[in-house]
Structures are given as structure tokens and as C-alpha cells.
């Protein structure tokens, strides 16, 4: 018997708020060079949403984020964005996977964050007073105000994530795209990052993040998009999306879904995986309230 603490009812905002569309992908097939990674994807993200993308490695999670950022090759379909009035393009704040960052680069926290404002800083190589004030404010807001002159490698995992979150936020983005922001960090840091993202979302920032972490991250998000083998398998609130059938189509493996109140917990069929009996005729365990 797995005991799950019931979470407070109604803690998640609705998965599809009434905001106007910010990004619309229509029948999009996209990838790199001559290889499509995502096929025939229809997806709409509205202003004010906080959505997560889940799926196994190589399924196309990062490609979905990069397609929205216009950094992939489009084979078919369209990507439509809705910038602010008077602006030609959507303002994006992109936070890459920590593994993709060159931590040995001779860059201080302040220099790294100001890169997110390269356009607004004008022609000068150096920041103006207004830029320095904005930098100080954003670093202070994220709790790393004392680290502006520290080299990016000489930071803890949480501080590194906050630095690149600050770079994304200093450009006042319409949309924050985060590629696995909780990967490789400890539990406390993960809590801090998710708490911070929740605050930003409540303050009006639209967020789309990919994650591997179904239980500690994905189940707490208002909206989940499941991507499996380059296709969008499901899209909706976690309680609707996280079913054994959807998980099997997304991950290609049997999983148990345990529920209690609002709490959801996904468990791998480890016994079957260990004994090699995973493909038995046994019906997958249905979505079942546990403990109650």
C-alpha cells in the first residue's frame, strides 16, 4: 500500500486559461537537417499558462521548445506567434539544459545575465546605468545579488539555474522556455526552482518547461503535454493525461498510476522489468484511488 498525502484541493490553476493564444503550432513537422523529429504536432499555448512537456529521452521535448523559438527546420505545418502590439517577434527567455552550458567559459554571473539584454543595451559594449540597475534588481529578486562578480562555474546547482533564469527574465519575456530546469539538482534546489517558477507564473509569466521528473515536477503542473516518438500523445491536466494507457504510448513501458485526492504518483512496473514478464497479458493497473 502506498500512502500519498492528499494535497490541498484546487491548488492547480486550470490547464487552459482564457488568455489569448501566444503560440500556435499547426500540423507542424520539424527537426534538424534532413531528419524530422516531431511529426504533425498541433499545440496552442495561451498567455499566462504554465505547461510541462514530458516524454522519454529523444522523444522530441527539446525540439518542441526549440521549434517555438524558431531554431529548428520546418518540414510542414506552421508556427504562429503573437507578439506584443508594435513588436515584430515574441520576446523569449530560453533556459537551456545545464549539461549544454560551457561552465568553463570566463563569464561572471553579471556578464552572463546581461547577454539576455543584448538588444536593449544598444551599440555600446558596456552596460548603461539603467542596465546595471535592472541587473541588480533581477539578481536580488532571484536571491543571487551577492554573486554578480562570481564566475559561473563557482556556483551551486541552484545558483547556476537562477543565473540562467535571470538571463531569461532580464529581457522581460512574453514566454519562458526551460529545458529540464530541475535535472541534476538536489531536492531542495528543485523545490526552490519550482517555487520560483510558480511565483513567476502567478505574476503573469507564461512558462513552458520540459522535464523528466514525473512525480516531483510534472504532476504539480497545471498542464502536461506528453511527447512519445516524435508525436504529441496527450495534452491536458495531469489528472486527465497521466493514465497507464497514455504513459505506455509515451514511454513504451507499463506504469502504475496511483491517486489520492489531487495527488498523483506514477510508478514503474519494476517487478516486470526485472523478471522480464512485462509483456504478459496482464491488464495494466487502472487509475485507482489508493489508500482512501
Amino acid at each position: 500500500m502506498v500512502e500519498l498525502a492528499p494535497s490541498a484541493p484546487g491548488h492547480r490553476p486550470p490547464p487552459h486559461p482564457d488568455g489569448e493564444p501566444l503560440v500556435q503550432l499547426r500540423s507542424l513537422s520539424t527537426g534538424y537537417e534532413r531528419t524530422p523529429v516531431l511529426r504533425d504536432v498541433d499545440f496552442t499555448l495561451r498567455r499566462g499558462e504554465f505547461a510541462g512537456v514530458v516524454g522519454p529521452s529523444g522523444s522530441g521535448k527539446t525540439t518542441l521548445l526549440r521549434a517555438i523559438a524558431g531554431q529548428t527546420r520546418r518540414f510542414a505545418g506552421s508556427v504562429e506567434t503573437h507578439p506584443r502590439p508594435g513588436e515584430r517577434a515574441l520576446r523569449l527567455g530560453y533556459v537551456p539544459q545545464v549539461e549544454a552550458i560551457n561552465w568553463n567559459f570566463p563569464l561572471t554571473v553579471g556578464q552572463a545575465v546581461l547577454l539576455g539584454r543584448w538588444r536593449e543595451m544598444g551599440w555600446r559594449p558596456w552596460p548603461r546605468r539603467h542596465d546595471r540597475e535592472l541587473l541588480a534588481n533581477i539578481l536580488e529578486r532571484l536571491g543571487i545579488g551577492h554573486l554578480a562578480d562570481r564566475q559561473i562555474r563557482a556556483l551551486s546547482g541552484g545558483q547556476q539555474q537562477r543565473t540562467f533564469l535571470a538571463r531569461a527574465l532580464i529581457g522581460d519575456p512574453d514566454l519562458l522556455l526551460l529545458d529540464e530546469p530541475t535535472s541534476g539538482v538536489d531536492i531542495k534546489t528543485r523545490h526552490e526552482i519550482m517555487h520560483l517558477l510558480g511565483e513567476l507564473n502567478r505574476a503573469g509569466t507564461t512558462i513552458l518547461m520540459s522535464t523528466h521528473d514525473l512525480n516531483a515536477v510534472a504532476t504539480h503542473l497545471p498542464r502536461l503535454v506528453c511527447v512519445g516518438e516524435g508525436e504529441l500523445v496527450a495534452d491536458g491536466a495531469p489528472e486527465d493525461v497521466l493514465t497507464p494507457e497514455v504513459l505506455r504510448r509515451t514511454y513504451g513501458a507499463d506504469m502504475l498510476v496511483l491517486r489520492r485526492g489531487d495527488a498523483i504518483y506514477v510508478v514503474e512496473h519494476l517487478d516486470d522489468a526485472m523478471t522480464g514478464e512485462g509483456d504478459s497479458e496482464e491488464t495494466p493497473v487502472p487509475t485507482t484511488p489508493v489508500g482512501g
Binding site: G70, Q71, Y94, P96, G116
Partner: peptide, 10 residues
């Protein structure tokens, strides 16, 4: 520093 991400920032 990161040409991939630089593209996403315009």
C-alpha cells in the same frame, strides 16, 4: 558562449 541559445534570443 552558446551559439544555439544566442539564436533563441534573436
Amino acid at each position: 558562449f552558446d551559439s544555439d541559445v544566442a539564436g533563441t534570443y534573436g
